[in-house]
């Protein structure tokens, strides 16, 4: 059974003629134990999608216009406040980009983790469990650290505390929104290793949201590439990264410099990501696409199965270029 099943999600900010669609016709699914990478540049709608899973976006201004989100068999968009409270933490936990601003600066680490435990596993809300969790995420001297405040910890340590907190409720799905973007590469490697171990140990699914294709290559099983509020390509990581189909994915992969590969010039994608009110008609990528056809300007492409059964691509010409 699918743990997370998003169908045709369409979400806009504002009302009437000023409504700005941030996510349009998005479908995603995730099974137990799977890691999905959701990749996109800023403004592509990836974080909004992530926040929608537990309905964390204040509504209004966000409005769900179409679609369905099923999480662990429950319909999120019509869930009662009580059932939402059970889903949040109980089924899905979040780890965000900046641990420093997600932790409460005036509470000790222990107090913050116990708060989560009291909510979801009241019988285990004690110090030994807090120490066990901190130990599990690799914090040295947890007995001492749990009495400290967030500012006494480094960025990497703070992110470990966030992960410990997310794990405290034993979620089935961990949504990690740019979990390592604020961290240095050596610390990033530590956190990646940790996430990988945890998903294996607890059979936990991970939705990894990032702009870094390298992270997806290292951690994820499947990948979905977003552009301007839509998914343009999905599939298993090795297939998508080795033989991308959508022109955007191809260009994105070519514009990332790689260690140890000689290339005099990077392939740059002309122009920039369109902002919400200025999404072009037709295919949203057509103004920047080197293969754009006249009808790309008018006809909005749909997601089509491509190359293999578990891949889709939102470009009718994807299989025609070489």
């Amino acid at each position: 059974m699918l743990l997370l099943d998003i169908r045709d999600l369409t979400l806009a900010f504002g009302t009437g003629p000023n409504a700005m669609p941030a996510v349009e016709g998005l479908s995603l699914s995730l099974s137990q134990g799977e890691t999905l990478g959701l990749v996109g540049e800023s403004g592509s709608g990836k974080s909004i999608t992530a926040l929608s899973i537990a309905r964390l976006l204040p509504s209004p201004p966000a409005r769900y216009l179409r679609g369905q989100i099923r999480l662990d068999g429950r319909d999120v968009l019509t869930a009662t406040p009580r059932s939402l409270r059970e889903l949040r933490g109980g089924v899905v936990s979040y780890v965000f980009q900046e641990p420093g601003s997600s932790l409460n600066p005036v509470l000790r680490i222990e107090t913050q983790i116990r708060e989560t435990l009291r909510q979801h596993r009241p019988q285990a809300a004690d110090r030994p469990e807090v120490i066990r969790l901190l130990e599990r995420v690799g914090i040295p001297a947890p007995e001492r650290r749990c009495r400290e405040y967030p500012h006494q910890l480094s960025g990497g340590m703070q992110q470990r505390v966030m992960i410990a907190m997310a794990l405290a409720s034993r979620p089935k799905l961990l949504v990690a929104d740019e979990p390592t973007t604020a961290l240095d590469v050596t610390i990033q490697a530590q956190i990646l290793e940790l996430l990988d171990d945890l998903s294996e140990e607890f059979g936990m699914s991970i939705l990894l949201i990032t702009h870094n294709l390298g992270l997806v290559a290292q951690l994820a099983d499947r990948v979905a590439i977003m552009y301007a509020g839509q998914i343009v390509e999905t599939g298993p990581v090795p297939e998508v990264l080795r033989s991308p189909l959508h022109p955007y994915t191809r260009l994105l992969l070519n514009s990332v410099p790689q260690l140890g590969k000689d290339r005099a010039r990077l392939t740059a994608i002309p122009g920039s990501v369109p902002s919400l009110p200025n999404v072009p008609p037709g295919c949203r990528f057509h103004p920047r696409c080197p293969h754009a056809q006249p009808d790309c300007r008018q006809i909005e492409p749909v997601e089509l199965p491509a190359a293999s059964l578990n891949r889709t691509v939102r470009c009718p010409y994807a299989l025609t270029f070489t």
Partner: peptide
């Protein structure tokens, strides 16, 4: 520690 783009060459990371 630099994540490689090629999923088939998951580098042996020296984790500091």
């Amino acid at each position: 520690a630099v994540p490689a783009l090629d999923p088939l060459t998951r580098r042996t990371r020296i984790v500091l």
